[in-house]
């Protein structure tokens, strides 16, 4: 396809925890799988994450958290995407979650949750199957014009 471009993924670490082993391993695996990857580094607020996602014109945000603060930060990212008319950017999550939180996060709009033990190949396959480049995303990856 002439218009096919690489998926652009933002790997992001919301909250104050520094457990970045998983985020960095997954970021590297995404890059090796041929996706374009931006990684925020640790200690990002939901506001910073959404702003980076829009600026970098990504198709997917992968949130990684191990602090237990996901009940606040995950839904907040979804909410901010809506406020910025960017709800077509999909969001997935990885990390440690109490079992009862997982359906709640999915209801809030998180497309998939990957728990410890998920294989890199599984995550890549899920992304390849479920996420495609957004229609209005510029091929060059430049930021969309905003009001």
């Amino acid at each position: 396809m002439a218009n096919a471009r690489k998926l652009r993924i933002l790997v992001a670490k919301p909250g104050l925890d520094g457990h970045d082993r998983g985020a960095r391993v997954v970021a590297r695996a995404f890059r090796d799988a041929g996706f374009e990857v931006v990684y925020t580094g640790c200690h990002q607020t939901p506001e910073q994450i959404v702003s980076t996602a829009i600026q970098e014109d990504v198709d997917l945000i992968g949130l990684s958290i191990l602090s237990g603060a996901h009940r606040y930060s995950f839904p907040r990212v979804i909410e901010l995407l809506k406020e910025n008319n960017a709800e077509d950017i999909s969001v997935i999550g990885g990390g440690i979650f109490p079992m009862e939180d997982i359906p709640r996060l999915k209801e809030a709009g998180i497309k998939e949750i990957f728990e410890p033990g998920a294989k890199l190949g599984e995550i890549i396959e899920w992304v390849g199957t479920n996420i495609s480049p957004r229609m209005d995303a510029d091929e060059s990856g430049s930021a969309r014009v905003s009001g």
Binding site: G15, L16, D17, H43, T45, S67, G68, A69, H70, R71, Y72, S73
Partner: peptide, 20 residues
């Protein structure tokens, strides 16, 4: 985490983290 990072619980950066 807020204490570890030098923030009081009232900091906006600390939302959702208190005592976790």
């Amino acid at each position: 985490f807020p204490t570890l990072m030098g923030y009081d619980t009232a900091s906006p950066l600390a939302r959702g983290e208190c005592g976790k």
